[in-house]
C-alpha cells in the first residue's frame, strides 16, 4: 500500500485501542441447526458446481478429480436445502439428520 501515512511517527508507541472493537475472526457452529442433511447421488452428479454456487454459508467443496466430488462442511451446513432444490440433475436429496446413508 502506498501513501498510507503522510509522515511516519518518530518511534512506535504501544497504545491500547479503546472502544467497542471486534478483532477475532470467528464462526458460529451453525451446523447444529441442521434438521435435514443433503445427500448426493454421485452416480448421477455431473460435477457442475451449481450446489456450491448457491450455498448460503459457502460450505460445499467440489473436487472434480474424485467420484465423490461434492463435500460439505458439517460444522456449518444449516440444511436449508437450496443445493437440493437447485441441482440440475436433482441428484441431491435432503434426508433427516441422524439417519444413516
Amino acid at each position: 500500500m502506498q501513501n498510507q501515512q503522510e509522515k511516519p511517527t518518530k518511534k512506535l508507541q504501544k497504545c491500547s485501542v479503546l472502544g467497542p472493537v471486534a478483532a477475532i475472526f470467528a464462526s458460529a457452529n451453525t451446523g447444529s441447526w441442521r434438521l435435514e442433511r443433503p445427500e448426493v447421488d454421485f452416480d448421477q452428479c455431473i460435477k457442475c458446481g451449481t450446489c456450491a454456487r448457491y450455498c448460503p454459508p459457502d460450505i460445499i467443496t467440489i473436487d472434480k478429480t474424485k467420484k465423490e466430488c461434492v463435500s460439505f462442511d458439517w460444522n456449518y451446513c444449516k440444511g436449508c436445502g437450496i443445493c437440493a432444490n437447485e441441482c440440475p440433475k436433482k441428484c441431491i436429496k435432503m434426508v433427516p439428520e441422524g439417519s444413516e446413508a
Binding site: 475472526f25 470467528a26 464462526s27 458460529a28 457452529n29 451453525t30 451446523g31 441447526w33 448460503p56 454459508p57 459457502d58 460450505i59 462442511d73 460444522n75 456449518y76 444449516k78 440444511g79 436449508c80 436445502g81 437450496i82
Partner: peptide
C-alpha cells in the same frame, strides 16, 4: 473467503 462460514443468518 472474507466472511466466516458460520453466521446466524436464517436458513436459505
Amino acid at each position: 473467503g472474507l466472511i466466516s462460514h458460520g453466521v446466524s443468518a436464517c436458513h436459505g
